[in-house]
């Protein structure tokens, strides 16, 4: 194996090496499947020919150095990129066989099915209760206040937060600690009962203990939801995910079972990254 430092790993030298994805990027019966996805912001292309399947009820981690396009890719999956005017997406993205970017696919409906948790906890300036009840209310998922109560409590329970906040459901969401806020955001997402949850570095703003709690939570949530998690921490990817996709300079370099990727990477850039030679 060649010794490479950060500099020689630049794409201009090695573009040919990862022009197409190595590994098991395609699956049978995927929850979400993407083919030849290209994304650009104005003149700047952020994703090149990404093809990746995401399996049902499992956690897939998207890893890679910062600026590699993993967050952009994630935001394509529930069309959060729509809010950025200059963002252009081409290629095929399917959710259960339905085209995500089709004209008749409604972004509101899509986002109700594909929820998202952000890097920085962003509770609304409302009470804890109202934060969780927000989604069910706007979507009309509850027919009575009792139903809303029920949804709020189950969601908080599922997010492992209920025991901590049950006495102060009317306190503002911003009064919680960082880790609690992030779990509140997860509870908020669960309350809409999505099929897929996208997580954009959900623990990067948290301390190690809060991170551990979130990671446990993700593992539990896998029973009912398909989860796509972007992370810059390889340890986290190894701990919570079943599959891992390695992104580099806007391309998916390698995809495979997490165990396999971390023990036996096939692409030398993947290896360089997970062994900490750059990134």
């Amino acid at each position: 194996m060649q010794q490479r430092n950060k500099k020689t790993a630049s794409p201009s030298l090695s573009l040919g090496n990862f022009a197409s994805t190595i590994g098991e990027n395609l699956l049978n019966d995927a929850k979400i499947s993407t083919r030849d996805v290209n994304v650009s912001y104005g003149d700047k292309q952020a994703i090149y020919d990404a093809s990746l399947d995401i399996g049902r009820n499992q956690v897939i981690a998207l890893i890679g150095p910062s600026g590699c396009g993993k967050s952009t890719f994630l935001r394509c999956l529930n069309r959060m990129n729509d809010t950025i005017g200059i963002c252009k997406v081409s290629g095929k993205l399917m959710l259960d066989g339905e085209d995500i970017y089709a004209k008749k696919m409604d972004p509101v409906l899509l986002r109700a099915r594909v929820g998202m948790v952000f890097q920085k906890p962003n509770p609304f300036p409302k009470s804890i209760y109202d934060n969780v009840a927000y989604g069910p209310r706007i979507h009309g998922l509850a027919r009575s206040n009792a139903e809303v109560d029920e949804i709020v409590i189950t969601s908080l329970e599922k997010a492992g937060l209920f025991e901590e906040v049950k006495d102060r459901l009317n306190a503002p969401g911003t009064s919680l600690s960082g880790g609690q806020q992030q779990r509140l955001c997860i509870a908020r997402t669960i309350a809409v009962s999505p099929e897929v949850i996208l997580m954009d570095e959900p623990a990067s703003a948290l301390d190690p203990i809060a991170t551990a709690i979130i990671e446990e939570l993700i593992d539990e949530l896998r029973q009912n939801y398909t989860i796509v998690i972007v992370t810059h921490s390889m340890q986290q990817a190894a701990r919570v995910s079943q599959r891992t996709a390695y992104f580099h300079m806007g391309r998916i370099v390698e995809v495979g079972d997490t165990n396999r990727i971390f023990t036996n990477p096939r692409h030398e850039m993947t290896e360089n990254y997970i062994t900490g030679k750059f990134g």
Binding site: G115, Y134, R188
Partner: peptide, 27 residues
């Protein structure tokens, strides 16, 4: 009002007017 508030609401499937009326204006 930080963009993350808008993102949080939109990601839950709120329309823009719902986001404005129920999140941004209260904030």
């Amino acid at each position: 009002v930080p963009q993350s508030m808008r993102d949080g609401s939109l990601a839950l499937g709120a329309t823009r007017s719902e986001t404005i009326k129920k999140v941004i204006i209260p904030a």
